[in-house]
């Protein structure tokens, strides 16, 4: 058994992916950093868990616990300028204008998808969540001093849910193992040799 916010975030991702129609990409983690070239011509929406609030007076030792998780939805847009006449600079729609228009439409699109009446339970079973709501939309300033104009912005998606504390002893998680192979690139001398 896992906490509900994990199910919710997976469901939100599914809703957005199904509705994207290839027009944007859904990513499920908060990025350390992003290259503007990775976003150009492919808008990105990143959905990740932000915080959870529990009502201390709403639960029991073994039983239900009311909570209000918050999910961050990060909207990334990067755009180039677009011209109609390669000899006429005045025919150009600037990268800033393109990015600005694209971000507004993108935010509107995501808002309307998530607030659509069909998604009142965010794709989960009736009663799993309630009061799903986008509380805030915040648009950042245009970053204009690069090859592309970039705009980032966030939405806060909240809902009410009930966590069930079963009283079972937690199951030990599965071990995660990985193999590390050290290269033997003789050109860059990256090989690691055993000490003699």
């Amino acid at each position: 058994m896992s906490m509900k916010f994990i199910n919710i975030i997976n469901s939100v991702k599914t809703i957005l992916t199904d509705a994207s129609g290839g027009g944007f990409q859904v990513v499920d983690h908060e990025p350390k950093s992003e290259g503007s070239k990775d976003i150009n011509d492919l808008k990105k929406v990143l959905v990740y868990f932000s915080s959870d609030n529990f009502d201390r007076n709403s639960g029991t030792t073994n039983g239900t616990l009311q909570s209000k998780p918050t999910f961050k939805i990060l909207l990334q847009v990067s755009a180039m300028g677009v011209f109609t006449d390669s000899d006429d600079p005045s025919s150009l729609v600037s990268a800033e204008a393109m990015a600005n228009t694209q971000w507004d439409l993108f935010a509107s699109q995501i808002f309307l998808i998530l607030m659509n009446a069909k998604n009142v339970f965010l794709g989960l079973a009736v009663g799993e969540i309630s009061n799903r709501f986008i509380d805030t939309i915040q648009k950042g300033e245009i970053i204009r001093d690069g090859d592309d104009a970039v705009i980032l912005g966030t939405m806060d998606l909240t809902c009410n849910t009930t966590e069930i504390v079963s009283g079972e002893i937690a199951t030990v998680g599965t071990d995660v193992t990985s193999n590390l192979t050290i290269g033997d690139d003789t050109e860059q001398n990256s090989a690691v040799t055993e000490p003699q």
Partner: peptide, 17 residues
Amino acid sequence: SKPFDPDVGGRIVIDRV
């Protein structure tokens, strides 16, 4: 390549000439 830390969202790296 210049990293920007905008007021909203995460860090973004932009090629800048």
